[in-house]
Computed example of a mutant assay.
Amino acid sequence: MPISRLFDLSDKSHAPRLVLKVGSALLVGKQGVRREWLTGLVAEIAVARARGQQVIVVSSGAIALGAATLGLDKGGRGSLADAQAAAAVGQIALSGLWAELLGSHGLTAAQMLLTLEDLEDRRRYLNVTATLTRLLDAGAVPVINENDSVATNEIRFGDNDRLAARVAQAAQASAVLLLSDIDGLYDRHPKEPGAKMIPVVEGVTAEVHAMASAESNSGMGSGGMISKLQAAEIAELAGIALVIGNGQYDRPVARIVDEGVGTLFLPRRKAGARKAWLGGRLRLKGSIIVDDGAAAALLRGSSLLAKGITGVSGAFLRGDPVAIEDGQGRVLAHGLSEYDAAECEQIRGHHSSEQADILGYAPRSSVVHRDQLVLK
């Protein structure tokens, strides 16, 4: 049964598997860990488990905790080295805290530290799926964070909003609940006069993106509303609902679900598992620019042919993920290229009958086949 309202998140038949994301500012205050607040949240997780729902936690806080222990300024985010060191210290405390509080309800915590590559590489992604499935079947509560001690600026999520959405894809979850420092998505910056919160969003469009702000009210976390909308897009591809709600209250899940205070993003579609993984990728190796005719053909479900290509960017190889863009720079699709960048440059604008003479071998049927392509 699909989710259609916030209250459905407390119903096992609508939401048998939930991903709950907790931001740094909610876990760590000026005086350290907000233990009383976290105790209440864990009690809510225990209630969900008691009614038969499986719960995965994506928890920030390692860098903030480690920075406080090591005495690092800027919350441990002054440099990459500071962040990595702070995470190494803080992750021990964070995982121990979750294990202790979940254990007080008879629940077993399982730590998983992931990098971007763990979810971008198909084989590693499937390994994550298998591990999560086994942990949940065994009754554990997976507690997941980005592996900030080894992640670099080039190979990191950078925020746990998008990580939570990718984990939800891998776990085939029903919904993602992002606990943040704001009630939901507003039609303009919430500090502006007349700003109104939007209770339901059906598909993240350009107009919805225009409402977003990159600011995070706490200054401690790394994700603002922009990252949350990106997370909603990732979840949508897999047919997963996503909720943005305010976690600053005691028992925040009950306030969001029972009182209906938050923004619910409803997916408009559901791609197959492989296409959902492909469409949710955050790192692409290049881009292919197409003309209006090719753009229209893609929207009709066709493969991308060389004739419709007007430009090539990046240094990608055959099988690498690429963005397909129109002439205005709008991303139309993600796909796996059947040619490398140099070959695409050689054959762009040419009919398939000409490609064998250009390349010196018989061409493949398409540059990006429709089975390896997902519309954005």
Results as ranks from 00 to 15, higher is better:
Arg370Phe: 13
Asp148Ile: 09
Gly71Cys: 07
Asp340Trp: 01
Gly96Val: 07
Leu41Arg: 03
Val33Tyr: 08
Gln248Tyr: 01
Ala297Lys: 06
Val167Ala: 11
Met1Leu: 05
Leu102Ile: 09
Asn147Leu: 12
Trp98Cys: 04
Met220Lys: 14
Pro252Arg: 07
Leu179Arg: 10
Val22Thr: 03
Ser95Leu: 14
Glu202Phe: 01
Ile226Gln: 12
Glu233His: 02
Trp98Leu: 03
Gln91Tyr: 03
Gly221Val: 00
Arg5Thr: 09
Leu336Thr: 02
Gly335Glu: 10
Arg34Met: 01
Glu154Pro: 00
Val243Lys: 04
Glu146Thr: 13
Ser365Arg: 09
Leu9Thr: 04
Leu107Gln: 04
Gly40Lys: 05
Glu345Ile: 03
Val141Met: 10
Gln53Arg: 13
Leu41Thr: 01
Asp326Gly: 13
Arg166His: 10
Gly311Trp: 01
Ala273Arg: 15
Thr39Lys: 15
Ala294Thr: 01
Tyr249Phe: 11
Gly203Asp: 05
Thr310Arg: 10
Glu233Arg: 14
Ala297Pro: 00
Lys74Arg: 15
Met211Glu: 05
Ala68Phe: 07
Ala171Tyr: 12
Gly272Phe: 10
Thr131Phe: 00
Asp320Glu: 11
Ala238Asp: 13
Lys228Phe: 04
Phe7Asp: 02
Leu132Phe: 05
Val167Gly: 07
Gly221Lys: 09
Ala173Arg: 06
Arg268Gly: 15
Asp11Trp: 01
Ala333Thr: 06
Ala138Leu: 15
Leu97Arg: 12
Arg348Met: 15
Ile244Asp: 02
Ser13Glu: 15
Tyr249Glu: 13
Ala235His: 08
Leu119Trp: 12
Asp187His: 09
Ala110Tyr: 03
Ser174Leu: 08
Leu26His: 12
Ile234Gly: 08
Ala214His: 14
Pro252Gln: 04
Val312Glu: 03
Leu163Phe: 13
Val28Ser: 05
Arg268Cys: 09
Glu192Ser: 13
Glu345Asn: 06
Ala341Asp: 10
Val368Pro: 00
Ile144Tyr: 15
Gly61His: 03
Gly349Thr: 02
Arg166Tyr: 02
Ala238Tyr: 12
Asn246Trp: 06
Ala341Arg: 00
Lys196Cys: 11
Val243Ser: 04
Val367Cys: 07
Glu338Tyr: 01
Gln248Glu: 14
Ala212Met: 05
Ser59Cys: 04
Asp320Phe: 00
Gly52Pro: 08
Gln31Asp: 15
Gln372Val: 02
Gly203Tyr: 00
Ala140Gly: 10
Lys30Cys: 01
Ala15Asn: 03
Asn127Ser: 13
Asp291Ala: 08
Ala214Pro: 13
Arg49Phe: 05
Cys344Asp: 09
Glu215Pro: 00
Arg34Asn: 06
Gly76Lys: 15
Pro2Trp: 00
Leu102Met: 11
Ala323Leu: 13
Lys12Asn: 02
Leu373Arg: 10
Arg300Cys: 04
Gly52Gln: 11
Thr115Leu: 05
Ser10Glu: 03
Gly52Leu: 08
Ile45Pro: 04
Leu38Pro: 01
Thr108Gln: 11
Leu359Ser: 02
Asp137Ser: 14
Gly262Ser: 02
